[in-house]
Design a protein around this nucleic acid. Sequence first.
DNA 1: GTTGACCTTAGAGTAGACTCTAAGCTTATA
DNA 2: TATAAGCTTAGAGTCTACTCTAAGGTCAAC
Lengths: 149, 149
Amino acid sequence: MLKISELAAKTGLTAHTLRFYEKNGLISASNRSPAGYRYYTESDVRRAEFVKTARNIGFSLDDISQLLSIRVDKTSHSCQEVTDITRHKLDEVNEKIKELQSMQQTLNILLDSCCGGPELATQCSIMEALDEGEVRNQRNKHKKLEKQK
Amino acid sequence: MLKISELAAKTGLTAHTLRFYEKNGLISASNRSPAGYRYYTESDVRRAEFVKTARNIGFSLDDISQLLSIRVDKTSHSCQEVTDITRHKLDEVNEKIKELQSMQQTLNILLDSCCGGPELATQCSIMEALDEGEVRNQRNKHKKLEKQK
DNA sequence: GTTGACCTTAGAGTAGACTCTAAGCTTATA
DNA sequence: TATAAGCTTAGAGTCTACTCTAAGGTCAAC
């Protein structure tokens, strides 16, 4: 059985984060010492590592909660439920990538247009573009898409 | 001279957002009525539109503050200062894209590995992968990179 | 003169994932 | 027995960019 700092060392999460996860229903210690110290079993460790792996992939704590509830009773859940969560996450990721690529393109165009030198900004083509609003962008479009979800 | 709701209509920002921007030093009304109503000049409108364009590209409010201080006195600033801000933003965007592409790849691999059907999750390969921590990921790497900035 | 639309302010709330603090107990070691 | 390290809790703070609320003042029209 591990104390919280030992689990922290083992998982790379901090003790603070582990308590935070407990408060949010993700990981709790199966046992407590008489004084209230958390003691984690091997099974708790595996759960904590599951959470860490899922978090590293990019799942939200909310996604992880769902995955955990499947994990504790796999016979009551189907593969489809798991792939639904995964696919939904992938959709989000794809959407964000699109947004960022749009920004990337705009920023590259701006950078290409400007000398970037010690010249005064009076005729800086980036400033001009911003002033004239002549920057094609898709942020709002993406925002709308996000809200449609 | 425009009242706040008129500027809101013209820019697509809300009156709430305009007041929020004022509180944060981005846009303020050059004039006030005796009763305290904000009245925006043509020059204020152009500034507001500049802010909106920059925000749509993806610049943070902090970036925009910097761009605005260049804008009001272009003869004291160089193109390089403008490109520095832009390039820094581009670096951030590129970094985030990399992170997201890493997630995207992982999610695609997970989805490919699972049948996604009505089968019980007892042998779901996504759950197995999460349990075994066998998911290559780069989030921490990216996190470290972020902190180095 | 009254209705209704619009304006003002300070300040609280939201989301997500932590991160930290304060005040006080527990435990191991010298 | 004293010290230091480590544990507990509740709750506040951080970051970004809003978003909303409450309580009240203003203005044009009928």
